[in-house]
Structures are given as C-alpha cells and as structure tokens.
Design a binder for these strands. Structure first.
Lengths: 232, 232
DNA sequence: TAGATTGTTAATCGATTAACAATC
DNA sequence: TAGATTGTTAATCGATTAACAATC
C-alpha cells in the first residue's frame, strides 16, 4: 500500500508541522480548519498550505476548509507515523539519553529497541526502558531484528565508523546528531541534525542586529525554511 | 565592524558546515582546500561552494584553492562565532541538560549564563556549571544582564508563555526545542528545532522504500536542504 | 609553460505567490 | 442566496547548475 506519491522536499518538511497543528486544533475542539487558519498557526502562507496538502489529499471543502480528523489521519498515513519504526540508538551520553526519553516521539511511531555504547561502565544498565548494550553487538542486533533506522549520538570522531557498521548490517536511514558529514552510499538516507550549525545562524542574526537597536535591515535573515520558521 | 552583508538563507545555512569541514582540514594538516574538495566533504556541489563563499570572501586563489586559516577566520567572523553570546536556557529536563552540557557549542561562542525551571526540586542545584533558578526570576535576569538569546526546552504547553516573558525582557533570538510554532513579534527571530518533525521525514522515507528492496525510485526524498543533507 | 581552480555570468530549474473560477 | 474557501493555473521569484575567461 502507501501510494508512492512524489512530493517536493520543502513541502515534505512542512507536513509534520501541519500535522502537529491539526492535533492542537482537534484538542481545542475544532472540526474544520481553513488553509488560512492552518497557515497562521504553522507559520506559512495560506496558498502554500493548500498546495502542500494537495500533494497528498484533495478533500478540502470550499467554504468550509479541511476536516481535521480526516486530514490528520491522511497525514499520519502519508508520513508513515502509524506503524512503529524500530530503531537503534548509539551513544548513551547526555544527548542520547534525552532522545531515548523524549516524549515527543511517542506519537511519531519511533521505537528505540536498544541503546549501544562503548563505555563498559554504562553497559548492562538501562536507558529509559532500553537496555544498554556494547557497541560490538550492534551489527548482530540490527541484522537479527531487521532494523532499518539508526540514531547516532556519539562524538564526531566515532560517527563514521558507527554509520559504516549500521549500513553494513542493513540500516537504511540514519538520524545523525554528530557534528560531521557522514559519507554513505546512494541508497542510504542521512538526516544531519547539526545543532551547532543551527546555533551559528542565530549568532549571525544577533551579530547583524547589533547590540542595541532593531532598526531597519536584516532582511537577509528573514524567511521560512523547512522545519525552521524565522521571523526577523 | 561586521559588514552588513546580505546573504541568501540557504547559503547562510551551509556556512557553518563549511566552517566545520575547514577545521577538520586544518587538523589534518592541510593548508589549502579547493571548492571541489570542500564540497565533497560538506556534501555540496563545488559551484555552490564557490558561490556561497563569494558572498563573504573573494580570496580564493585560482589553481590553488582557499587558504584554510584565512577562510576559517573569515567565516567565524561573519557568523559571529568569535565573541561569546550570552544565553539563558529554560527547562532543565533531559534535553535542557543535554544542551547545557553539549561540548559542541564551545567553539560556537555560546555561553549559557543561567538555567531556569519551574520545578522547586531542581531549583538551587546546578546544571553543567550553570545555576538552576526559578522561572520567576527569568525576566529580571535577562534585563539585568542584557541577554539577547533564549533557549527553550520546556514542554509545548509552557513554551509560548516562556517566549513571551523572554521577549518582553529583551530577548531577540529564540532557539526553540518545544514542538510548537511560537507566535512572536516581527523583530524577534525564532529557530524551531523540531526533532519530531525531522523524524517524520525519515519515517516517510523508510515507508516509501518499503520493507525490502531499494530498487528504483525515491527521488522525491533526495536532495540537499539547509543543514540537512540527504542521500537517497 | 601546462594544469588546476577561481569568480562570475548565463541558463536551468524549482518553489512561492497571486489570482480566480468552481463549489460548499 | 451571499460569503467563504477550495484546487489549480499562471506569474514571479530565487536558487542551483553549467560554463568559461581570468589567473595562480
């Protein structure tokens, strides 16, 4: 199943934001939402909202808007949030700990089946209900359970080796929090979550603004970009 | 100082990646690097590298490439990484803890001066050398120290109120990890680091790929995008 | 010199925005 | 019905890619 619908990346990045807003609207007791309202809450233009949604659903009703329940279900299905995705996490440091216990992932179908670390002192313990295993067992477990997603929260210098091991064992998508650009084969997807890089763009903005005023200028740092919304 | 150079957002997002690669090259003993090599390591096209760099520096030498030391210094200056930026962090949970102690920020001039939390049990303690203060003192401290950057790692339902307090007290840039789209005035910059949203795009990719093969198709999820590099 | 690589212009590509007839 | 809002097309805008003379 799951139509092999093609969608531009910028649109794809906005879909989860719409999804979240829809859940909020539903919690607020709303039944329908217009592209205008949805756009306002998500931070995007209303025409863009309609265009994005039309990539996956054309069930909006003129004059009324979108039925929240149906659209949310449609988005969840499209994004693959319904059936849980098993994943392994490597690196039981502070960031790994935070991710393993992040409540926000629950609704997104992420299931961390095991956590790995190279530190003997950590092995044998548990991290938010996941056992901490030695990194030497990583490949074996991925193969045995057919895991296709890996999360990397190790220091930069270990990241490439971990990625290589994951890929050789069958992982197809890597969520990388190590500050390094991983080299991977064509058929493996890497999403770099480079926190320091994000920080740098904020620093740039503050520097440009200068220590005092907020006068004119600054257009260069204004705009929308994927999951990150900027208001300058 | 600090030229008010305008630069497209996609270029701005790539600059920190170049910067990081340059440091790695320097550590490896290199003195010059070509746009081709830099692009390969950063995951971008060589023409794009030249175009991006020319927004901030035209010191490349035909036949040789870019002098690493000079280019790195130029990037650090442009991004505002040289002079430390004071920031407050609100939310001493797991994610807040991870960020407060993240070693990767050291070289990016981030200085977390205080951590805030609403939980009385946490107040009075310290988090990675920063004192944990009650949220009621947030506004006062921001004003007293002239803080301009705030980091939000509280649950979604508290995030908007914290943001409002920060902004009223003088914060101009917010790094938001709460899964919600903050409503802020025009002159305040928000960078949403929506981890669950990022996860959703990976889930989509795995779903599209199907549980088995990696045959054809999948172009829809391939491409480069800001700090996130995808290889599909 | 010959080979390599830059800075920059032109061509291509794709995404956003505007507009509006169709429809609830 | 009148007002609101959709889906979609056309127009605008901006970013990426290709190409190449200039230059080390």
């Amino acid at each position: 199943m799951a139509g092999l619908v093609s969608i531009p990346r910028p649109s794809l990045e906005r879909l989860p934001v719409y999804y979240r807003v829809l859940l909020q609207c539903r919690d607020a007791g709303m039944q329908y939402v217009s592209s205008k309202e949805l756009g306002k809450r998500a931070g995007f233009d209303n025409a863009q909202v309609r265009k994005d949604l039309n990539h996956i659903w054309s069930g909006g009703r003129p004059g009324l808007g979108y039925e929240i329940d149906k659209l949310a279900a449609c988005l969840a299905d499209f994004l693959g949030l319904c059936n849980a995705t098993d994943a392994v996490l490597v690196g039981a440091g502070r960031l790994g700990t935070a991710l393993a216990g992040y409540p926000g992932f629950a609704g997104y179908g992420l299931n961390i089946v095991a956590v790995f670390d190279a530190d003997p002192a950590k092995i044998g313990g548990t991290l938010c209900a996941s056992p901490i295993l030695p990194a030497t067992k990583l490949a074996n477990l991925i193969e045995r359970l057919g895991i296709r997603m890996g999360i990397i929260t190790v220091p930069a210098q270990s990241a490439q080796a971990i990625a290589d091991t994951m890929i050789a064992a069958g992982v197809r998508a890597i969520w990388n929090f190590a500050p390094i650009c991983l080299q991977v084969p064509e058929n493996v997807l890497v999403r770099n979550e480079d926190l320091a890089a994000g920080l740098a763009t904020l620093s740039y903005y503050l520097k440009e603004k200068g220590p005092v005023s907020d006068s004119a200028k600054g257009e260069s740092v204004v705009g929308q970009s994927d999951t990150q919304a900027f208001h300058g």
